[in-house]
Nucleic acid binder design. Structure first.
Lengths: 229, 229
DNA sequence: GGTAACAAACAGACTGGTCGGTATAAATAA
DNA sequence: TTATTTATACCGACCAGTCTGTTTGTTACC
């Protein structure tokens, strides 16, 4: 090859990702992307056949990165403990740490951005998003099943949706962090997920020393029944 | 007034909301909106000065509806129990029921849609989104504080982020339901929020009868320490 | 008839995408 | 070593179509 185009290609993708997370895919015009990347239209359409082709490349790159990230954190957790519950809690804490590092450009997720413009994308691009989600859910869900074999949950829970909760909290926290312009929101929600798992499965919990508990329990007995759940 | 335009105005807003949730705001062209609403461009720009004006009207309408919805569910919960914890749990369950009713057009949230195109909107429109979020957080947070005065949490939690978790789960669940094309995902995540609150605050929990607990605890002791949390 | 509610044609800016041409570097040939 | 070919990497003007918004005109109701 004559010159190395990989740097240009990466510059285009980085610029595109930034613009897309600010304005969405439609409003991220090719002109705005090339302006940000500091290249020209010719270079853009040399590297990407169409704008849709760029979308597919972007979502694939993120999918690969996220899968690798998950594997890294899971392996680290597995090397730190032999107990499945501890592994899962550690893994969640690792994500909490990773998210705490995120800074100023309030974090966002390409998957969410694309999903809220889903009619604009072809089946292949949306399929990548679905794959990432199912892969994540199955990976966490597998760990959860190992946990449940050792520790019966304090409340009946569905493994699949409980695994999905981690995804859901992450996606929701990205939105919250953008609304509040506070990158710390993501880490805070991971911590709540860790709490939830601990409360569900940890064999020994501190019985809270509740001062007004008796009164509260009395209330409880006085109250009308809960609506059918 | 000569003719009643409120029906047309509502038709425009309904059509716009539907198109926006499918394609995003940029791609929701005025032409596509008026086609869906069955009217013409003249009618559109009679009712809305600009497209941005429509965005503001839409987000305001949703904000009002959501605030009213929250007030309805809170009041129902307060009428069903005198205990703050029960009120909160009931309120969450009411939302779970409401979300279970949602059907085919996989639910979505205008706030999230707008936030992922935030550069396209003026401060007023984004301000409405922020207001909804802070109002929701404060309303739930207030209840949570009442709960915490009666029931010490089993794990140390931050009231603000715990209140935000409800918002975060809702927003994240919308995304998940769109990815999976399963409207039931939203209700499932509300249920987990209820579980979390119950495990955190409920004075009496079933101590799980864990068969392999001893072995697990032994593992626990063998394991390397958790990374600094 | 006066005004609110709409229709339809139009304008100008911007869109994704094309295309002829250029620059650079490696491979080949003299 | 040097000249020539060849393929990759990139440029920027341009096209057809779409975008929001305007303008002018028509309809329906008090």
């Amino acid at each position: 090859m004559a010159r190395d185009g990989t740097a240009t290609r990466k510059a285009i993708m980085d610029a595109a990702q930034a613009v897309i997370l600010e304005t969405g895919f439609s409003a991220a015009s090719v002109d705005s992307v090339i302006a940000r990347a500091g290249i020209t239209k010719g270079a853009f359409f040399y590297h990407f056949k169409t704008k849709a082709d760029l979308a597919l490349a972007l979502v694939r790159r993120d999918a690969d990165a996220d899968a690798a990230h998950l594997e890294t954190n899971l392996q680290r957790a597995e090397s730190l403990s032999r107990d499945p519950l501890q592994q899962l809690l550690i893994c969640v804490s690792l994500y909490e740490e990773d998210m705490a590092k995120l800074a100023a450009p309030y974090p966002g997720c390409l998957y969410a951005s694309f999903i809220y413009e889903s009619q604009l994308f072809d089946a292949a691009t949306l399929g990548v998003v679905r794959q990432v989600f199912t892969h994540w859910t199955q990976r966490i869900g597998g760990k959860l099943e190992a946990v449940m074999r050792l520790y019966p949950p304090r409340l009946p829970v569905d493994v699949k949706t409980l695994a999905e909760t981690s995804l859901v909290l992450a996606e929701g926290a990205f939105i919250l962090s953008k609304v509040q312009r506070d990158a710390g929101a993501v880490a805070a929600q991971w911590r709540h997920y860790r709490n939830y798992l601990e409360l569900l499965f940890a064999p020994h919990l501190p019985e809270p020393s509740h001062p007004a508990a008796d009164a509260a329990v009395t209330h409880d007995k006085l109250d009308a029944a809960l609506p059918a759940q």
